[in-house]
Each structure stands twice: as structure tokens, then as C-alpha cells.
Design a binder for these strands. Structure first.
Lengths: 184, 184
DNA sequence: ACAGCCATGTAACTCGTTACATGATTAC
DNA sequence: GTAATCATGTAACGAGTTACATGGCTGT
């Protein structure tokens, strides 16, 4: 009965387990505040097509609330909850995949002047700070609902993980940049 | 004249700037020792199709060396080198994308028993150690050719980056696991 | 009235993967 | 001789993206 779905499907399904029903649009917004930092930010069109697929398989159900069939809210079904639990419990979790264009360019730094590489690193550090600020905002919004047993316990753990992760990346790259600077 | 190529094309092209000509097979091996840790490990079939595309555009040239047209070695052309330098210098570098299934499952940890999540983290830490050992082997093989000006200076910097990155990830996850353990 | 956001979808396309097919060379 | 590895490709497919199209709702 194990219907093989891509991980992103389960990810979106998982976002519907926080006690509320969401429209496709709202689901996309939630993904942008969560999944984005350690999975992907799916395109709007993909959110809708994933919802269609999940509907077909009975893992979510559409309950239109709006006047004229718009604002269709989706709710996870008991079957969907079982499928999600089974996936979490039985399917082997894959190894993380990192696509890091900055490090990729560092690898072939010998084809450009050293200053080009240093500039790239400085700019990346700025982008990193901005990215971190976004996540810090998310983390703050979870304050007070993050104790063991609370609804947003796990999202809070994940946000904390992300902040530490980004701080680690910054520290490593600052050290690397300093090393490049002193050797010119 | 800027022919838009996917990043992976430039990555493979970049692997041909280390002074030697490679067959598709050898290029795949080099990718597995380098790109794999911070970009992707392209499938064999993709390596061949990328080489075809790079050939068509004159960025690499095939020089068959083997007796009967096998063991075709590829060399980057001057035009290829220019295209690569232009890409490094002018194209904006994107932000890293992380696909981290372990953290994704942590986010929705509330749908399974806490022990399932803890077990996942323990297993991931083991996989992480194995992954790190592979990279440490690569790093060791570059010893002695990693000074400023040496051929493998930048690959060594990148390998060092990777080891620190993995150590950071391990530290964060160990702390997280301890936190989950004590709260049970 | 108009701008901006909410909301949903279709079509075309690219990247990248897996499965398959083939055969040569090397080591035991 | 036979297994492992070297070496090269084709075909089918799936995930995910961008571009496009449409229209309702809300605030000013």
C-alpha cells in the first residue's frame, strides 16, 4: 500500500498537521516560512499540483469555504495522517544534499583573480546575514508556543537548528576570507 | 555571447581546468571526489550529455587517444576557459540550497513517537561520520600540493571548508539530540 | 478608479535520474 | 575463462521551474 510520493509531497502534507486547514496559497506561504530554510520553496504551481495529487489519493480533502468555489481549504485526512506516519517511521531518511554555488566557485578560484573570489565571499556573507534575519523573524513569532508539548515545539527546534547552522556557516566563511585576505 | 548554461555544466567544465585531459568516466570520478560534497554527484549519463553540449559550443574538444575511438579524452578550449572566467566574474552567484530530509522530519516530529525522531537523529549522525571520513580521505590526498600557488590550493581550501562544515553540523545535532533525550 | 494582493490554474520546458544495452580491457 | 572494472551511450520518465492567463477582493 506504500504509495511512493516524492519527499516534497510529504513535506506539504506535513504542513497540514498543525491543526488548521489551508488554501493552496496559504500553504505556499507556510512553506516559505518553514520548508524554505532546509528543504525547498516550491513554486505556486507546484503547490497546486501536489494538492491535486494528494486529493486523488485521499490524503487530503478539499472543503470549499468561499462563496463561489474560491478559497478552497484543504485538510489532511486520517488516511493522510497514517501515510505520513508510515513514511516517517519506515522510509529510510536520505542524506542531505547541499548545492552551494559559492563553494563551487571557490573550488575553481584559480581561473580568476583572487580579488574576484574575495568579493564573492564578502557578498555572500551579506546575503547570509539577510537570510538569517528572515529566519530569526520566524523564530521570534514562535515564542511562547515552543515548550515540550506545545503545537510549535518542533518548528521551534528546527528554527533554532537553522540559526545555529547559519551562524556556523558564517564563522567558517569569515575565517576563510581572512585567510585569503592575509595571503592576498 | 553569454550562452546560458546550467551551473552543473560550468562545474564540470571547471573540473577540466586542473591541467589534465579526462574521459567522461574520469570526469565522473573527479566529480565524485569534489562536487559531490557541495554540489551534486551527476549521473554518468549526464556527464556524457554535458560533454556533448560543451563540445557543440566549442568549450571543450574531444581528442580520442584510444585505439578504436574509445577512451575519448576531453580538453577545455581557450574559448571554454574564457566562458568559465566570464561566468565566475559576471554571473551573480546564487544562494545555497539545502535539502535536509532529517530536519524536515524533525519539523513534523509531533506525528510520531519521540523515540522515532531520536533514532533518526542517531542514525543520521552515523551517516554523517561516514561521509566525513570520505572527505577526510580526499583532503589527505591533497597534502603537499595545497600551498598558495599550488595546483590544488583551492580544492584544499574547499575540502577544509567541508570538514569544518560537517563538524559544525555534527555538533549542532548532538546538542539537539541531548536536548531531546533529557526531555524524553 | 486603481493598485495591490489573494487565488487558481495551464503549458512548455529543463534538469537530472533510473533503467537498459553494449562491449572492451584488466586481473585473477 | 570469467569477474570486475572501464567506457559510452539511449530512452523514458519525473520533479520542479518559468511564463502566461484569469479574475476576485480590499484598501485608498
Amino acid at each position: 500500500m506504500s504509495q511512493d510520493l516524492p519527499v516534497t509531497s510529504y513535506a506539504l502534507l506535513g504542513l497540514l498537521t498543525f491543526g488548521d486547514d489551508l488554501t493552496g496559497y496559504e500553504l505556499k506561504q507556510r512553506a516559505d516560512r518553514t520548508l524554505r530554510y532546509y528543504w525547498v520553496a516550491p513554486a505556486m504551481s507546484q503547490v497546486y499540483s501536489e494538492l491535486d495529487r494528494l486529493s486523488e489519493r485521499g490524503l487530503v480533502r478539499a472543503r470549499d469555504a468561499g462563496p463561489n468555489k474560491r478559497s478552497t481549504k484543504y485538510r489532511i485526512t486520517p488516511k493522510g495522517r497514517r501515510a505520513l506516519t508510515r513514511w516517517m517511521t519506515d522510509e529510510p531518511v536520505g542524506f542531505p544534499v547541499l548545492k552551494h554555488p559559492v563553494v563551487l566557485r571557490l573550488l575553481i578560484g584559480h581561473v580568476v583573480a583572487p580579488e574576484v573570489t574575495r568579493r564573492m565571499l564578502r557578498e555572500h556573507l551579506a546575503a547570509l546575514a539577510e537570510h538569517r534575519a528572515g529566519l530569526a523573524g520566524v523564530r521570534d513569532s514562535l515564542q511562547g508556543r515552543d515548550e515540550p508539548g506545545d503545537a510549535f515545539r518542533y518548528p521551534s527546534l528546527v528554527a533554532d537548528w537553522g540559526l545555529e547552522y547559519l551562524d556556523g556557516e558564517r564563522a567558517i566563511l569569515e575565517k576563510l576570507l581572512a585567510r585569503l585576505d592575509e595571503e592576498s
